[in-house]
Simulated assay, not measured.
Amino acid sequence: MTTIEVTGHRQREAWAEKVLPPVEEVRPGLWSIPVPMAPNPLRYVLIYVLALPDGIALIDTGWPSDDSWQALVDGIHATGHDITDVRHVSITHLHPDHFGLVPRLLEHVDPVLAMHRNDARHLHHVTDTEIEQQLSNAKRELEALGAPDVTDNGFRHIARLPKGRPMDVELEHDEPLNLPGWNVRALWTPGHTAGHLCFADDDAGVIFTGDHLLPRISPNVSTNAFQLHNPLDQYLVSLAHTEKLPDLEALPSHEYRFRGLADRVTDLLEHHEERLREITTAVVESPESTAWEITRSVTWSRPFEQLGTDLARMAMRETHAHLVVLQQRGVLTPTEGSPVRWHLAVPVASTTPDGSPR
């Protein structure tokens, strides 16, 4: 494993002590604000504030709760600004710890909202019938993956914009944010979500990596109704593109700041190749297994039995994303019907040690 250079020392100390880090001015006019997201193993999300001539811009907003809202308001006050000074909000992706406080923010101010179109399309107002269809589809997906007890379909937070409020800017890859005094551009890095964005400012020497690159863990890359067909393949391609960027200081959404983008990319690519090998081995040892059964047989950061229902299903969907890549590579094949079961596409003797065809 390669070694990154930790630059957010106070953030890492706070992480080790299981407390919130302080609000910090990372560059002149650029601050990081920790916003709690309990209960969650990641504990907080880092929101970034950029000073503008007439106010401030935000990158992400935080988890939709009263405690998170108060932390955001207090953090902005610590920068010398007020919540009503927000003029622009760029969202890395649609997950509730990043987008969740947008509706509440809109009760106080009317900023420009910017997001990648792949995620923005899920935020428009939908009817109750459409929501019921989404919930029904989620249940069928869980059944196809072999999950037990799917009476609870797993939906907790369905992100929505207030009715009639559009997403002002649907960003494309390498599109500038046009923030006065900054040279920030959007980088499309799909994988964690279909529309995940990083934001880079070469002049300031920073890249806001969202959940695409974190210093210590791999982000969850899962199959679900809001994703691309093959999210892990997209993520691996996104990592390869990120590896070619200048060595900017990484300002992630969780944990702490660091340098060493290329080294971190190398570690993550190796991690996923190892997981692909492990899953292939699991199918060799137990042919015709479901995604749920395979998930229970591979290693996780803690014993699988200690994962709650939500985390276990996230792990299962992540396993399924790896299975889809192995199907794409011609290593594994799924059966028809529900639940879907997996077996080798080629005889064991015709595969290399990493599970790929000879």
Rank of each mutant, 00 (worst) to 15 (best):
W300H: 15
S286G: 01
H212N: 03
A240S: 11
L236M: 09
L228P: 06
A282K: 06
R317M: 09
M316E: 07
D247Y: 03
K244F: 02
Q306N: 10
Q328M: 05
I294K: 03
T309Q: 07
P339S: 11
V237P: 00
I279S: 02
I217W: 05
H212M: 09
D247W: 02
D267K: 07
E336K: 08
E318N: 06
V284D: 00
A282T: 13
E288A: 02
Y235D: 01
S301N: 11
D310P: 03
L232E: 07
L269E: 11
L344H: 12
E249K: 14
P246H: 05
V331I: 08
A225W: 00
W342F: 14
T280M: 08
M314G: 02
R277L: 04
G210V: 15
F258V: 05
L307C: 08
F304R: 01
L228N: 15
M314R: 10
Q328F: 00
S338L: 05
V346Y: 14
A262R: 15
V283Q: 03
H322C: 15
A282P: 06
V340T: 14
L276Q: 11
E293N: 06
R329T: 14
E255Q: 13
V221L: 06
T299S: 13
R259A: 05
E273K: 10
E278K: 00
Q327D: 08
L261P: 12
W292T: 12
E274P: 06
V346A: 15
L214T: 13
S218C: 14
H322E: 14
S289V: 14
E249F: 03
P334L: 03
H241W: 13
